[in-house]
């Protein structure tokens, strides 16, 4: 999987030097995951497409700003996509009650799964999974709702039926525990 990160890195370096072909390869390899990230946050195809477009325009222009300290190439691209989606989410004021959060994990989109191991996050993912497993159900669920669906603490209370203070402390304590585990 290290090689995948290497591959993405090569494409990104070439992209930074204005190589359109490399940029297209980068797009082909990563757009499926990034589109899922965007779709989960926005729940609307057209908005998710707008975000994906914005994200890749930004990736093209900012490719030279990437460096290893920012994480893997994929992690960097996910962040660009997520921040753009969060901006849009905020400006369009999508409310949690309009959203179907309880989407089954294997819906029709699963049929479109691409060979996902291209991504180069797999090793980190294994560790994260281990650490997430170590959390209590409430801690884990709150973090997932916030991360994948962009739900505010307030919206999570509506979803879990818990008090605001409780949700805040779940997320905070969950993440502190997660950090200890990940950085151990």
């Amino acid at each position: 999987m290290e090689q995948s990160q290497q591959q993405l890195l090569q494409w990104l370096y070439a992209t930074a030097q204005g190589n359109k072909q490399a940029f297209e390869q980068l797009y082909q390899a990563t757009s499926g995951k990034l589109f899922s990230v965007s779709l989960h946050l926005l729940r609307r195809h057209d908005w998710a497409e707008d975000v994906l477009q914005d994200a890749f325009v930004r990736i093209w222009h900012n490719a030279a700003d990437y460096h290893a300290e920012k994480g893997s190439v994929m992690s960097w691209m996910i962040s660009i996509t997520r921040y753009r989606a969060l901006d849009l989410l905020k400006s369009r004021r999508v409310k949690a009650e309009h959203l179907d959060i309880s989407e089954p994990e294997h819906d029709q989109t699963s049929n479109e799964v691409q060979p996902g191991e291209v991504i180069g996050l797999v090793r980190d993912k294994v560790k994260l999974d281990d650490c997430m497993q170590g959390l209590s159900d409430e801690h884990r669920q709150s973090i997932q709702l916030a991360y994948f669906n962009g739900l505010s603490h307030q919206e999570i209370t509506a979803h879990t039926g818990s008090a605001l203070g409780t949700v805040k402390s779940w997320i905070r304590r969950g993440l502190t525990q997660l950090k200890r585990c990940l950085e151990a």
């Binding site: 995951k33 989960h40 497409e49 994906l52 989109t109 699963s110 479109e112 691409q114 996050l121």
Partner: peptide
Amino acid sequence: LNPLAEGLPATVP
């Protein structure tokens, strides 16, 4: 946190 996204199935745009 971003490796969380690895668990998502890819959706081809």
